[in-house]
């Protein structure tokens, strides 16, 4: 039982800190963006336009993470990615928590949920691409 209580606390804290970190990254990104007046060679008014063409499909995330530069947009993207990653971290911790309780059925169930998530993040884009 002791394990279970610890895990619930860890899951709760992961969610909380995930949100705090991502919002901090986003705020820092917005501030840098306004100080520099542009980001990654794109002007601020082009970025901030309501029907801006700068969106998640025009940004190469891998490249951005590999050579991370001190740009507002990079911080915002990193913050948004952290936010999306938070629930995924929760699922992985959930699997660990059920495994500790030796609850086989729920380990399997949670692995299926994780698979659905991984499928939508990595496999599906590749399929749509073809």
């Amino acid at each position: 039982m002791r394990h279970k209580i610890d895990m619930e606390l860890i899951i709760g804290q992961t969610l909380r800190f995930g949100v705090i970190i991502s919002i901090l990254l986003i705020v820092v990104g917005v501030v840098i963006l306004f100080i520099q007046g542009q980001s990654n060679g794109i002007s601020l008014d082009k970025l901030s336009m309501i029907n801006s063409t700068v969106n998640s499909s025009s940004i190469n995330v891998n490249q951005m993470l590999l050579n991370f530069s001190f740009n507002g947009l990079n911080f915002i993207i990193l913050g948004l990615l952290t936010l999306i990653a938070t629930p995924i971290a929760r699922i992985i911790l959930g699997i660990a928590s059920f495994a500790m309780e030796k609850d086989k059925l729920y380990v399997i169930i949670t692995v299926i949920v994780l698979f659905n998530l991984i499928f939508s993040i990595f496999i599906l884009p590749a399929i749509i691409h073809i």
Binding site: S56, S57, S58, I76, L117, S120, I121, I128
Partner: peptide, 16 residues
């Protein structure tokens, strides 16, 4: 999170 990863790929997320 499941939906947003597909939205991300399709370009429906405008960072600003």
């Amino acid at each position: 999170a499941t939906g947003s990863s597909i939205y991300w790929y399709l370009g429906y997320i405008q960072p600003f």
